[in-house]
């Protein structure tokens, strides 16, 4: 017996496609959920991150919060919120928005912090207003790191959305849990392959996007030697990444 052949057979079985519990519908649910969660988290995290990055204030709190959130198990948060507001999509939305905020926030402010201080100083000295500095200097130069934060958040949300099928009837995760319940290994494995493919495709898209948004002047030449030393703080070793579920 070959589990993989079974899984592929399961994936190719036309019976698994139509209807609200078919593969396309589940995939659509997972994608929609991911996008909505990311938008919600971004609306909160990006402005706050920009503010922290621009002013340098509140950074300590942001670092501590994201560090603390990294330690909080997603499954615990998910089940707890589900007990509070009931089974359904509400709990995953709340829990995953909360979990997606730290990487996006970190991407936003580390992007600003990675901008050479002298460049910002010069922009101010030639007469840019604070808003113009944010718009014309900090956002374009910090964009790659922000996209990096969004990338981490996306991975985490896609992954945890799978787990969220434990508390809500939606997404590709249903195949995993349904298969687990009935010992249907083909379904479990087929669903797993779908989730992994989805994650890798999104990862690839973001990797491409991240390359695309590096401003040309920065991508073209070698950055000044001292670039790292002259940034306000070393973004250093505190990956915005939190391993998703």
């Amino acid at each position: 017996m070959n589990y993989f052949t079974d899984a592929v057979a399961w994936l190719l079985d036309p019976a698994h496609y139509p209807g609200p519990t078919g593969i396309p519908a589940r995939l659509g649910e997972q994608l929609l959920f991911t996008v909505v969660t990311l938008v919600l988290a971004s609306v909160i995290a990006i402005p706050v991150g920009f503010l922290i990055g621009h002013t340098g204030r509140g950074r300590g709190i942001a670092v501590a919060t994201s560090g603390g959130l990294r330690a909080i198990p997603t499954l615990g948060l998910l089940t707890l919120v589900a007990l509070w507001i009931g089974i359904g999509l509400g709990a995953p939305y709340v829990a995953l928005t909360v979990l997606a905020i730290p990487p996006i926030l970190a991407g936003a402010y580390t992007g600003f912090e990675a901008v050479n201080r002298a460049t910002i100083d010069a922009a101010r000295a030639v007469g840019m207003t604070e808003l113009q500095i944010v718009r014309h200097v900090e956002i374009p130069l910090g964009l790659p790191l922000l996209i990096g934060g969004l990338r981490s958040a996306t991975l985490q949300v896609v992954a945890t959305a799978t787990l969220a099928a434990y508390v809500a009837d939606f997404g590709l995760g249903r195949f995993l849990f349904a298969g687990l319940k009935t010992n249907d290994y083909a379904q479990m494995l087929g669903g797993s392959i779908l989730v992994i493919l989805l994650a890798l495709v999104l990862e690839g898209l973001f990797a491409g996007l991240q390359k695309l948004v590096v401003p040309r002047g920065v991508a073209v030449g070698r950055p000044p030697v001292d670039r790292k030393a002259s940034t306000r703080r070393r973004p250093g070793m505190e990956p915005a990444i939190t391993k998703g579920i």
Binding site: D121, A122, G127, G217
Partner: peptide, 22 residues
């Protein structure tokens, strides 16, 4: 301040040019 700075030329040590602009 902003108006004042726009009326005064300023040149600094490491040029302070915007790296993403020509």
């Amino acid at each position: 301040p902003v108006k004042l700075r726009r009326s005064i030329g300023y040149v600094m040590q490491n040029s302070g040019l915007l790296p993403h602009r020509t």
